[in-house]
Design a binder for these strands. Structure first.
Lengths: 335, 335
DNA sequence: AAAAGACATGGTAACGATACCACTACCAGC
DNA sequence: GCTGGTAGTGGTATCGTTACCATGTCTTTT
């Protein structure tokens, strides 16, 4: 394994000069630069990032910890992070927690030990502990994605859950729906709470007071959507419209509706939150509010790298990106 | 940031003893162990893996480079790798190349610099260069996943493309199909070649000689499937059955068939390679050959870690795992 | 003409851990 | 009483790189 010293010897300079050439830092004459580059190429020199990181206290690596890599929302976020990071010379290490707190803790531990320069975290649960731990043990900034964490002094980038669900609900109200069933994620996750609240508030403003009665809490999964839909239909009379608060819940709901022979939108209207890839269904027909996943990743990464660059402790920022309403064919007017 | 020296001082021992406690290596008396562990806990000690890696020349980290993280086949492989790695105390760094050679090269470079202990690689193209590069520059073993690479002296773990497609074809032949259209991946990728060959061979054994005439080569994507299906239907007479050689191609093919109003299986039969998650369609109906993705990941990782442990250079292994035929409702007999 | 800056290079130490070797103490076996 | 093994601990060097400071040569400025 050839080292910087070998390259230096071959080029007839000191190791530090090789370092300057490789990192484009400090002054190096053109002729020296060429000699060094030639020597490095001839020797097939590969810098040792472990040594560099140890000495410089910088790894040029961001950690991205997210909850579900099978959800296209998150793969899109990841792509945004990747691109932003690459543009500024950072690598990204991606870890998937499966919404599992224990896994999350394991990953966070390893990432701290590996001395990440910064952390992008989509917390599995709404507790501030993992964030505190990073802030305490790793002298590195944290940006939280997607979910609000109470009591955490930390930057946040997320989509407008409240606004998106408010807009979806207004749309359903316009169509004449007066009873809307909400299939929600876990009660302990901020996005769930906000999406439910946005819906209830919109109904309240339309003088519908019992909006909160038709809420089911569950998991952000296909299975969760399926069983919540089942429970929702058990009520009499059941809602004329369903708000599935995430894309997997929407799929589960659709599966159950199809199983019991209810057609969308003829028999019941359905709206969702976050889109499904075009490829998954033969034709997109679901009306949804879409968060700008790519931008969430991109802006999160940029904010994080800004923090890394000027470790000046500005106050925590909260960036909320608007959700877009996409109207398709999954709803019908009442009457 | 507290170091091993701080812990040592506090526990009244030498740094090396702390190291022994933390790594459970060498002899340490019970009382010393407890003092050290207490000291480490009190000081919130976090080992620096950069330093450890630099000195010991081991990072306990595997690189996993794959081509498409949005494909459930690969996320399942990744899960297999993760689990196998965790079981033996390794971390995994996952990189997604999007089938893009330039991205792949970038990732491989960074991973070598970061001194991975081993590489799991699903090559974007069938050239041996990236493998050679790793073998030359990084003193670390490589295991190739899924795709056979000519001229590369390297371990391989993959599914049985040939056998799976042979079995699918036999099934179609049993149903009386005599003209089967093949929608294939890139000609430069071994899985494509093998799947096409398995199909052609099965037909030949049934005395169908013109099997090779109904092959389209394209990309392993939804768009690829769509346009290949289109071209296939342009032929007169068109095949009575279609073999989509990967899951995304199958989706694209289905989309085009629906667009032109052809029903599966009433108007045309369709089989696929590798499954789709239950959640993606409201009900699974596609007959497919399924590779054991999780096992591919798991066995690949295990083989790799074996190589790392005994760096003895046994001959390259080739592990081919059987594909399973799952018969559903996407095919009808002829006549 | 002297001072101040840009340009160019190098020497030395240090980052935080483990490899390697050395040392002591104790015990078993002949 | 000697040899040789296991148990337990530490000293020192070193992994490959960059931080920090020093030094020297040119220009440019005042």
């Amino acid at each position: 394994m050839t080292t910087i010293q070998d390259v230096a010897t071959r080029a007839g300079v000191a190791p530090i000069t090789v370092s300057r050439v490789l990192n484009r830092s400090g002054y190096v004459s053109e002729s020296t630069r060429q000699r060094v580059e030639a020597a490095a190429a001839e020797l097939d020199y590969v810098p040792n990032l472990l040594a560099r990181g140890l000495r410089s206290n910088r790894t040029n690596t961001l950690a991205l910890v997210l909850t579900d890599i099978t959800n296209p929302f998150w793969t899109t976020v990841a792509r945004g992070v990747e691109d932003a990071a690459r543009a500024r010379g950072f690598s990204v290490i991606l870890c998937n927690t499966d919404e599992n707190e224990a896994k999350q803790e394991q990953y966070v531990d390893v990432l701290i030990r590996k001395r990440m320069d910064g952390f992008l975290l989509a917390p599995a649960r709404s507790t501030p502990e993992p964030i505190r731990k990073i802030q305490k043990q790793a002298d590195a900034p944290v940006v939280v994605l997607d979910r609000r964490i109470a009591d955490a002094q930390v930057d946040l980038v997320c989509g407008d859950s409240y606004g998106g669900s408010y807009a979806l609900t207004q749309y359903l109200l316009q169509l004449g729906h007066r009873c809307i069933g909400i299939l929600s994620g876990p009660q302990a996750v901020s996005t769930s709470v906000e999406r439910v609240q946005g819906c209830i508030d919109a109904m309240q403003e339309a003088n519908i007071e019992n909006g909160a009665e038709f809420v089911q809490f569950g998991e952000y999964t296909v299975e969760g959507g399926y069983s919540m839909m089942q429970q929702m239909l058990a009520r009499q009379p059941h809602p004329t419209a369903i708000f599935a608060t995430n894309n997997f819940i929407a799929i589960g709901a659709l599966q159950h509706l199809r199983n019991v022979g209810l057609r969308v939108p003829q028999d019941i209207s359905l709206v969702g939150f976050d889109d499904l890839p075009l490829s998954w269904n033969t034709e997109p027909f679901l009306t949804v509010a879409v968060q700008p996943a790519y931008q969430i990743g991109q802006q999160g990464a940029d904010l994080l790298m800004d923090r890394i660059a000027n470790s000046a402790q500005a106050n925590p920022q909260e960036i909320v990106l608007p959700a877009e309403l996409i109207i398709r064919q999954s709803c019908q007017p009442i009457g």
